[in-house]
């Protein structure tokens, strides 16, 4: 996935002189996750801008420059640090167009490594994409595959609105086919990653990896799971989910993040509003434990839902 993102960023820089990259240590250091390694030598420090550790202000400045006619691509070192920039992101990035009666455009892409699983403990393991997805004015995407990462990045760069791209840290090394042509992946469209007829598994980002493990285990028992990758958290593609449930009559929702108020709470609510009659039983929702992320490996693994926990929830809910 790293190479797919690099390709997308290079295309953007090559294709539009008003595109520039901004973030902490994205230049000389090459980026905390090495996404921009070597970029500064190719494009120079004006377009690959290292910033002081002032998240609220550099993100706000990037937003301001977007309003001023540039097309910034901001990289957070971690979505955990986006907390410091919520004021600028939400009060200006997401709201200035509305507050001004439609006078300004904010064409900015904010890339944010997200998620837990690499023992960074409570301050560095956040996944705020669900919070951000509740903000009108944002579009929020979360790719699982290299193909989707590049396709969604291209769509994000064609938007005149702030787009947040949550990139799960465990997926950067993930491999997958990426064609040579200039395909795009539309924002707001979920993807059926695996077709099946017995139960629908809905997930995003790293949760999709878990969903595939669940599907494999169910297959051994002759149960065909359909895996839906949300890809886009805002707007949310309920049509694809409901269409699948109409076929399977069962659904399990998988989310690594805190269960309370999580992304799947919203998905679950919408399913109950729009697809209640399609279901044979209640929604099976599996989320991360409601605890600050622990450091110790066994503890951390305990709070992130694994395939066994999902299977137990499915058995409990649907008896299969």
């Amino acid at each position: 996935m790293r190479e797919a993102l690099q390709r997308g960023l290079r295309e953007a820089l090559d294709g539009n002189p008003n595109v520039y990259l901004m973030g902490e240590d994205i230049g000389a250091y090459g980026g905390a996750y090495a996404i921009t390694a070597g970029f500064i030598d190719e494009y120079g420090p004006e377009r690959i801008r290292d910033v002081p550790i002032s998240e609220n202000t550099f993100v706000g400045a990037a937003i301001g420059s977007a309003i001023g006619g540039l097309r910034p691509i901001v990289e957070f070192m971690s979505i955990s640090f986006s907390l410091l920039a919520f004021d600028q992101m939400i009060n200006i990035g997401a709201a200035i167009r509305y507050m001004s009666g439609g006078q300004f455009k904010v064409p900015i892409v904010i890339r944010a490594p997200t998620g837990s699983g690499i023992q960074l403990a409570a301050t560095h393991s956040h996944a705020f994409e669900n919070w951000l997805a509740s903000v009108p004015g944002f579009r929020v995407v979360a790719p699982t595959t290299p193909y989707d990462a590049l396709g969604l990045l291209r769509s994000a760069l064609a938007e005149d609105n702030p787009v947040i791209m949550a990139e799960h840290v465990s997926l950067y090394g993930r491999r997958g086919e990426v064609p040579d042509d200039r395909y795009t992946v539309p924002i707001g469209k979920a993807d059926v990653k695996l077709a099946g007829s017995d139960i629908t598994l809905v997930a995003f980002a790293h949760g999709v990896v878990t969903a595939f493990e669940v599907a494999d285990k169910l297959k051994e028992r002759g149960i065909a799971a359909e895996v839906i990758d949300l890809r886009s958290l805002r707007p949310l593609d309920m049509d694809t989910i409901l269409k699948s449930i109409a076929k399977t009559n069962r659904v399990a929702l998988i989310d690594d993040n805190w269960r309370t108020g999580g992304m799947m709470a919203e998905v679950s609510a919408q399913i109950s509003e729009q697809g209640f009659d399609l279901l044979d039983g209640p929604v099976a929702r599996v989320g991360g434990d409601d605890v600050p992320a622990p450091y110790s490996r066994p503890l951390e693994q305990l709070v992130i839902p694994d395939s066994d926990r999902v299977i137990q929830a499915i058995q409990k809910t649907y008896g299969i």
């Binding site: 706000g60 400045a61 937003i63 301001g64 420059s65 977007a66 001023g68 006619g69």
Partner: peptide, 9 residues
């Protein structure tokens, strides 16, 4: 920050 961003542009 908005002022800085407009100036940067």
């Amino acid at each position: 920050p908005l002022a800085c961003g407009l100036a940067l542009a």
